[in-house]
Write a protein that binds this DNA or RNA. Structure first.
Length: 589
RNA sequence: GGGGGCGUGGUCUAGUGGUCUAAGAUGCCUGGCUGUCAACCAGGAGGUCGGCGGUUCGAAUCCGCUCGUCCCCGCCA
């Protein structure tokens, strides 16, 4: 039907007779001579219609944007003055002899150009048009390349891709499940997998040794710019492997992907930061290392100070800490109030700011600050005249996270965030943390191996136990997380018990898995990448919806198909389901 | 569950109590034009200002509710 893609011809093809197909990108009708930019997935090529080509010329003048056509013609070199340097095919054009209209297009809801932004809802409703834009095509092509290179890389290292079920069993903890009712077992439900975690561990027990999967995962939680109800993980797992071996392999993989997808070289090994240190220095377990502004502690300086609120916070075991923003003493009262509002929004009780002058300091708490204390603060924060010191006093975790949020905001405001790629590992996170109700929950997941040297603390001081777990952070976003897994039945039982799961409950929920551990489970571990997030970062996009062909809105609605949609009464009957009340659904069944 | 932004011809935006009988760009339609490439020139059509209710002599503009959408917190082992 066609000789090739529009964008693939060049001056070398001059004189060739070609057949081309594609969409009418734009038409420029000069009355006699008429030009059409013909577009396909490869790019544009200019078609020229001369009045002496009677029929083709007449037809061409009636074409509209996005009409689908097929042309036959001769590739010609353009005269020097007619070359378009902005177009890869700008040196040539096709002198059309025959034109066939393959399909008409209606007037468009929005224009197909990268520069013209339509409302996202409209873009999603007409996603097939949106995806014709070069930017979107490039994003999906990048995604394809990344997935292809993942498969090549892992295949070359002996990994086997195995698919795991989408219809599986709901397990406690974690996110809310998407449920699928069973027809053959009325009243029972499948759950869509939140991740293939247990299946991949079972594959290790089944001696596959090296597994991976580009796996779709489902979590029914509220969405964000970097979260969709269904998303894709690169999931991988290895047996008889140390944490070092996993990290080394993942680093190689990430370097490979950057090289193949972006032509960028990364430095190895990636730096590592202990979880506690990341929190102390950056107020985050996924620090953005593209800029400094590190948090410094000042509890010792305020322990005996005249400022009662800080002194008492320290006496109660709290933390006084802060960060120094170079040159920000110029901030207005309003800007400082904005920062305080942000800090309070992040849980801090307040925010104290010190504007450093050539002599002394301007601050609401200035009268409580002795000259010695001011000098000590300048020293501690390496700050001088013109700089701004922001201080928070609170329970340590809360103070650090508030400062972490302020650090990001200041980095953005001051334009400190440089380009480039800052990767790092966050290692040795705590195995457990407390939830809102004060119950012990897994930081990572309940199958994570505690650090061997902390095993003795497990029952005695569980919150002090560190995990053999690791997160990979890129420019302040978590892109992968993994761990060495528990492979012994007895240890897994102890963990479940600590999590408040009775022997009976553990058997009921995880019996199949606990049994598998009893039949010769090898030591194993792995990692899972948030593929959408990784591709988003590589594409320089602000939202993972830009790298997903058919994403959903924040309310998990699909404007293209109208899903979710009501179903017929008879379908519900088959499933033994009765709706409690008429739901205010959009659209009808 | 909570906080915030947005919603104005097909699309993107301006307008924040009367001067709005709603402006501009783009798209669309008609005519002109033989070297354009975001073609150009001339003319034209196209709007219940998301919806409902209220305040007011008067509402795109203020208030309440509601729907949609986006961002953030909670949530996401």
């Amino acid at each position: 039907m066609r000789t090739g893609y529009c964008g693939e011809f060049s001056a070398r093809d001059a004189g060739r007779e070609v057949e081309l197909c594609g969409w009418v990108h734009r038409r420029r009708d000069l009355g006699g001579i008429t030009f059409i930019d013909l577009r396909d997935r490869s790019g544009l090529i200019q078609l020229i219609f001369n009045p002496n080509q009677g029929e083709a010329h007449r037809l061409a003048r009636a074409l509209d944007r996005e009409d689908v056509i097929q042309v036959k013609g001769i590739i010609g070199k353009r005269a020097a003055g007619n070359i378009n340097p902005n177009l890869p095919t700008g040196e040539i054009e096709v002198e059309v002899r025959e034109l066939r209209l393959l399909n008409k297009a209606r007037p468009l809801p929005f224009q197909i150009q990268d520069e013209v932004e339509a409302r996202e809802e409209t873009r999603l409703e007409y996603r097939y048009l949106d995806l014709r834009r070069p930017r979107m095509r490039w994003n999906l092509l990048l995604r394809h390349k990344v997935i292809l290179e993942i498969r090549k890389f892992l295949d070359a290292r002996g990994f086997i891709e195995v698919e795991t079920p989408m219809l599986t069993r709901s397990t406690p903890e974690g996110a809310r499940d998407y449920l699928v009712p069973s027809r053959t077992f009325p009243g029972r439900f499948f759950a869509l997998p939140q991740s293939p975690q247990l299946f991949k561990q079972i594959l290790m027990i089944a001696s596959f040794d090296r597994y991976f999967q580009i796996a779709r995962c489902f979590r029914d939680e509220d969405l964000r710019a970097d979260r969709q109800p269904e998303f894709t993980q690169l999931d991988l797992e290895m047996a008889f492997v140390s944490q070092e071996e996993i990290l080394a392999l993942v680093e190689e993989l990430v370097c490979h992907l950057f090289r193949e997808a972006l032509g960028q070289e990364l430095e190895r090994p990636f730096p590592r930061l202990n979880y506690q240190e990341a929190l102390a220095r950056f107020g985050s377990d996924k620090p953005d290392l593209r800029f400094g502004l590190e948090i410094r502690e000042a509890s010792d300086l305020f322990a005996g100070s005249a400022f009662r609120i800080f002194r008492e916070t320290v006496e109660r075991g709290g933390l006084v800490a802060g960060l120094a923003a170079p040159g920000c003493a110029r901030y207005s009262r309003r800007e400082l109030e904005e920062l305080e509002r942000l800090a309070k929004g992040l849980g801090a009780k307040g925010l104290v700011s010190l504007k450093l002058a050539a002599e002394g300091v301007e601050s609401a708490i200035a009268k409580f600050l002795s000259p010695e204390l001011v000098a000590a603060l300048r020293e501690r924060f390496q700050a001088g005249p013109g700089d701004l010191i922001l201080l928070v006093a609170d329970e340590p975790r809360r103070a650090r996270e508030a400062l972490g949020g302020l650090r990001l905001e200041l980095g953005r405001r001051e334009g400190l965030i440089s380009g480039g790629w800052k990767l790092l590992w966050i290692v040795e996170p705590p195995l457990f943390e407390l939830d809102e109700q004060g119950n012990i929950t897994s930081t990572h997941h309940p199958f994570t191996m505690p650090k061997a040297e902390d095993l003795g603390l497990l029952e005695r001081e569980p919150l002090a136990v560190r995990a053999d777990a690791y997160d990979l952070v890129l420019n302040g976003a978590e892109i992968a997380g993994g761990s060495i897994r528990i492979h012994r039945r007895d240890l897994q039982g102890r963990i479940f018990k600590l999590l408040g799961l009775s022997e009976a409950e553990a058997e009921e929920k995880f019996g199949f898995f606990l049994r598998a551990l009893e039949y010769g489970a090898p030591p194993h571990g792995g990692i899972a990448f948030g593929l959408d997030r990784l591709v988003m970062l590589l594409a320089g996009a602000e939202s993972i919806r830009e790298v997903i062909a058919f994403p959903k809105t924040l309310t998990a609605y699909c404007p293209l198909t109208g899903a979710p949609a009501p179903v017929k009464e008879s379908q519900l009957e088959e499933l033994g389901i009765e709706l409690r009340k008429e739901s205010p659904a959009r659209g009808a069944a």
